[in-house]
Structure formats: C-alpha cells, structure tokens
Nucleic acid binder design. Structure first.
Lengths: 149, 149
DNA sequence: CTCGTCGTGGGGAAAAGTGGGGAATATGGG
DNA sequence: CCCATATTCCCCACTTTTCCCCACGACGAG
C-alpha cells in the first residue's frame, strides 16, 4: 500500500511535462510498473494513482450498477478524464491538455502526497481553497476525529 | 477483462468511419479478433463492445425470461440495433447510418472509455447530458461511494 | 573537489489520425 | 438474364501529434 506525503512546488514545461518528486518516487510500488493514471479529482485538482492503486479504484467502480443513472454519470465522469501515462527516462509524466485546463494549471504546480494518491494543483487555486475553508484545522480535527471512534 | 478509459474527440469522415483511439485499442483483448458490436446505448449514445465483452452481455440477456413482456421489449431493442463491425487496416469502424442517426452524430464524435464498453456520442449532446445532471460530481461521488461500503 | 542524483529543456524518429481513389460486391430495373 | 447504378471494402498517401532519447545546470553527499 502506497503512503505518499509531502508538498512540492514544481514547474510544467512547454510540453505539459511534470517531474515526479524523488521522495514520491521512492514510495511507488514496483508493481506500478512506472505507469500512473491521472484523472479529475475532487475540487479543482488532479488525482494521480500508481497503476496498482488505480486497480483498486477501478475494482470499486466495477461494483456499481450499469442500470442506475447516477452511477452511470459518476463512472462516465471518473473515467472520461482518466488517462494512463508512463514515466519517461527522466521520471516525468506528461499531462494531457484537457486535464491541465480543467485544473487551471499553467506553468507551476503544487504536488501533494495524500496516502494512496498524489494530487496536482495550481498553487494559487490551492491557496484559495485553503482560505475558503469555513472552519479551522483545529475545529475540523475535532469533529473528524470524534466521528471515527 | 477490458478496462477502457479516456475521452477522445475524433471526426467522422464522409463514409461514416471513425478511428478507434490507439489507447483504447491497446486495451482490447486479442480474443476480440478485431470485431466489435455496436448497439444503442443508454442515453442518446452508442455502446461499442469488443466481441469478447459482447459475449458476456449476450449471456446475461439469455438469462431473461421470454415470457415476460418487459424482458421481450428490452431484448428486442438491444438486439435490433446491434451490428457487428470489423476494424479496417487503419483501425477504423464504419458505423451504420441508422445508428448514426439515432445518436444524432454528424461530423464529430466524442469517444468515451467506460470499463468494458466504449461509448460514442455527439459532443454537443454529451455536453447537454452533463449540464443537465442534477448533482455535481463531488456530491454524487459522496453518495455513490458511501452506498458501497 | 568530484561524482551522482535531480529538475529542466529541446530535437528527431515513429506512430497516430485523416482523407480519398479504385476494385469488388450488391441492388434494382429493363 | 444482363446491365447500370449504388454501396462496401481495401489500399495508399499525407499531416500532425506523440514519444523517446540526449543534453545541460544545480545541488548535495562523500
């Protein structure tokens, strides 16, 4: 099981390529085979899953009912944005134009390690997201951790 | 087992031919033998199954009861539209006129990979479909994934 | 100081998407 | 039954995009 963490500010070159941070790379299972699936995330960001982690996501999606309209909508949205990419010799992934546009990414990105997935943000959008949270880290922590027990 | 994904905007030439995206092609089982079954989908789109995946669909339809009027209606509709097509040398399928008409397709198509099937849409109709969803991706995700646990 | 790793940039070969011509097949009327 | 018209299918050709490879500067470890 992957356990990504950390925050990294990297640049996107003119071909839409982004390097995967070395610390992140070390946490990728060899089972991923240098293959990643990039898709639309929640909020305006991208989710990046190593192949092996993506397989788990896909499994849970297969369990959904093809005859349920809401499920169809969900599956279509999730999968329509999904692309698999291979690391190049320099450990970079190249992100399709559609996804860059969706996430509002231009020259700079913020890469976050979030356990089993990696997130890619436009740094400014991430900042806005953080500033627009109605509650503070501390108060959310209180309610979140309470639920868990 | 197939696992198609991705979104592709392609064109239909004057002969009704549509190329299958390379990334989609790579996920087609050799068992499909370059043969696909195109039929009417849910919502105003076409479903395309590789031969091997279609066999599974057909199996599940065989399980339906010939004595149930609703089942008869369903099976007739599904099968009356179904056609099998072969890839040409350039990995294209040529889509029959009536199916193009049903899906409202003219010069441009949107191709979606949705796990075991491929969907073909008129891009504008798909956009309308997406805009008319009562809920957002995030909220649907919440309810869909919660149900599953 | 040297060597290796890491982030960044760009050029060229290969593949992918698109379009059209012509032979083979099918259809309908005389 | 034969011919004319229409349709289908296969092959060839062009253009664009993608991907793979090589190269450079910066930083840090030894």
């Amino acid at each position: 099981m992957s356990s990504f963490k950390g925050r990294y500010e990297y640049s996107v070159d003119s071909k839409g390529r982004v390097a995967l941070p070395a610390k992140v790379r070390k946490n990728v299972s060899p089972a991923a085979n240098d293959t990643f699936i990039i898709t639309r995330g929640f909020e305006q960001c991208l989710f990046v899953y190593p192949q092996d982690e993506w397989n788990k996501v896909e499994e849970s999606v297969r369990g959904l009912s093809p005859s349920n309209p809401q499920h169809r909508f969900f599956v279509r949205t999730l999968l329509q944005w999904a692309t698999d990419v291979q690391l190049d010799g320099q450990s970079r992934v190249s992100i399709p134009q559609d996804l860059l546009k969706f996430a509002g990414i231009e020259n700079e990105v913020l890469i976050l390690g979030v356990l089993e997935r990696i997130e890619i943000w436009n740094p400014k959008i991430y900042e806005q997201y953080m500033n627009n949270q109605p509650a503070t880290y501390e108060t959310v922590a209180e309610s979140v951790l309470k639920q868990q027990q």
